Simulated scan of single mutants.
Amino acid sequence: MEIRNPKFNRFGSIDCEILHPEFGWIPFTASETDVEKAGQDIYRSALEMQPAEFVAGDPLPIERAAMRASRFQAKAALYQAGLLPTVERLLSQSENFMHKLAWDEAGEFYRDSPTIAHLAGAMDLDDLAVDELFRLAMSIRA
């Protein structure tokens, strides 16, 4: 498998591009704990390439405004980051009906929504951490 441009992300996994036989170069997040052996192999290969270190940066506001994730993607990303139980606990204890309703009923979550801002503040997550969670969510396919 051909790999290029490996760089560590905020969560310690490696963002890179892999050469897909049908789609050409595509983004891929490689993790040492990937459930698929192929993902673990890509991680090891990317690691041998000495990935660039993670450097925090502020994405363009337009990028942030375009970030959205389906209900499944959002919950899967929170699960992978170990944050799903915290979010569910916070919302179960919240007195804000609209945040609870959004969590229970929304088909999609938008990065710039009041519910996301509330949860990020309650969990003490900065903008860059929330951006990374959305990028992770948007990379997940059911």
Rank of each mutant, 00 (worst) to 15 (best):
E108R: 02
F11W: 11
G121S: 08
T33W: 14
D15Y: 03
P6L: 00
A65K: 07
T29S: 15
F97R: 14
G39N: 06
E36R: 12
D131M: 02
N9F: 04
E88L: 11
L78D: 00
N96Q: 13
I116K: 00
S31R: 15
A137R: 04
F97C: 13
L90A: 10
N9S: 04
R89K: 13
E32Q: 14
I3G: 02
T29N: 15
Q80A: 14
R68V: 10
L125W: 11
S70K: 01
F11D: 09
A74H: 06
A106Q: 07
L133G: 01
R10F: 11
D34P: 03
L84K: 07
E108S: 14
A77E: 05
M49F: 03
Q73N: 10
D15V: 02
M98G: 00
L90H: 10
S139M: 04
R64C: 06
E22W: 09
G107S: 11
A117T: 12
N5G: 05
I26H: 05
E63H: 09
F97L: 14
Q40V: 10
N5V: 07
R44A: 15
L84C: 01
W25M: 01
A122G: 05
A30F: 00
S45L: 10
G121L: 06
R68S: 10
Y43A: 07
G107K: 10
A76N: 06
I42H: 06
F97Q: 14
Q93P: 00
D34E: 06
G24W: 01
S113F: 01
K100P: 07
N9W: 12
I26F: 08
D41W: 08
L101P: 05
T33Y: 15
R68T: 04
A117E: 12
K75C: 03
G57W: 14
E53V: 10
E22V: 15
I26A: 11
P59Y: 03
D112R: 05
F109H: 04
T29Y: 01
A66V: 05
P61E: 07
F8I: 05
L83G: 01
P6H: 01
P51C: 13
A120V: 04
E105Q: 15
L60F: 14
G57D: 14
M49N: 07
E53N: 13
A102R: 01
G121D: 08
R10N: 03
Y79A: 15
E32C: 11
P85G: 03
G39W: 02
R141P: 04
P61W: 00
A117F: 05
T29I: 06
A76M: 09
D112W: 00
A129V: 12
E48D: 08
